[in-house]
Design a binder for these strands. Structure first.
Lengths: 202, 202
DNA sequence: GTCTATACCCGGATAGAC
DNA sequence: GTCTATCCGGGTATAGAC
């Protein structure tokens, strides 16, 4: 971890180190000492910038979520269904490649009941989800794709793409690969897009 | 938790309590005292039966894995592809309904790099997986279903079904439901079977 | 085999000098 | 804002009576 010159850079390097530690060890298992060492700062300095371990954890989650919000905001449903699903699948697989650790941390938080981001789920994810369901329903009424359950269709796309980030260890082991590189990501999004669009008669 | 009369029943109730605690809090976050309280035994008794916290955790994982091995062993690939995929999807959704906690615990372990079950992955999951891939490839060569990547097809089915166990909190919230009951499970496996079989031209 | 009491350690948080 | 030294609570594991 590079030395930070400004306060912002310092906090960014602490957040990066914390993300890795929290994902690898869980909230309770994470050690402030290891995070501090990885970011090259004394433990007390870390606690000066982020009041407590819990606050640091929440800051990590917020950083991840805001970066995702940016990445998905230009996915408008105004376009063609085919283009929309292609973009969505490609963006999610790309996110799994670029930052699997973020996806894992988010997943672990949800699995434990999402105690630290129930607000975000209610206020951000739920409205986005309802919006998508309405648009897809409309497309189905217009006969532009095969009629199925729109909500479960979205779950299917989420699950299929996130799997490559969250279960990367298992996926790589079963495919006899060492790392999740760009070529593997391209093959994966091509497979998923082709299979899911075929299932939608697109 | 009911009082145990035999040693086996005692250990089973400890394992059940431990599964809940480990899934909710993670390995490091789990507290032996809470597990002991939930199982109605003193903490020292728990440590007498299972040497250490880590050993208890591994015992929980082994119990889950052996119950899964039993549940899936009669899914032979000798039958019709349609019947096979129908059975597989139904069995996995049913497992998600019956014991979502087990699925979550397994998922968390994989996400953290599977340090306590890399042996099981290599010796049990990998052979099973290779076998399934071969059978599906054969079916595809015979033209009995649409040709795609067999490995990623299996990942897709795993991801799609496990999602309802691992992300149950999020799924229920977005569907405005309180609990994952049998009706919801039936609708879900029907959706998944219909969608995936359609995507395979079955 | 079961339980009470306790040893021992580790980690989050703070005090206070610089 | 940064860092050293330290406090203190809590949790695993064990010792030893029954």
């Amino acid at each position: 971890m590079a030395n930070a010159t400004t306060t912002q850079e310092l906090q960014a390097s602490i957040l990066a180190a914390a993300k890795e530690e929290f994902a690898r060890e869980g909230l309770k298992g994470a050690r402030l000492q290891r995070i501090a060492d990885a970011a090259n700062v004394p433990k007390a300095t870390l606690l000066y910038h982020f009041k407590s371990k819990t606050k640091l954890y929440q800051a990590v989650l917020e950083t991840i979520l805001s970066s995702w919000d940016q990445g998905f905001e230009n996915l408008t449903p105004q376009s063609d269904p085919k283009v929309f699903f292609n973009q969505l699948i490609h963006a999610k697989v790309q996110a799994a490649l670029l930052d699997p650790v973020a996806s894992k941390l988010f997943a672990m938080e949800i699995m434990q009941g999402a105690p630290h981001l129930s607000n975000h789920l209610q206020q951000k994810v739920k409205p986005w989800f309802r919006q998508q369901v309405l648009v897809i329903e409309q497309w189905m009424l217009e006969g532009r794709l095969r009629s199925t359950d729109p909500a479960r269709l979205i779950f299917l796309i989420w699950a299929a793409t996130q799997h490559y980030a969250d279960f990367q260890t298992q996926v790589l082991s079963l495919m006899n690969r060492q790392e999740f590189d760009q070529a593997l990501a391209d093959e994966t999004s091509e497979f998923l897009a082709s299979f899911l669009l075929h299932g939608l008669d697109l």
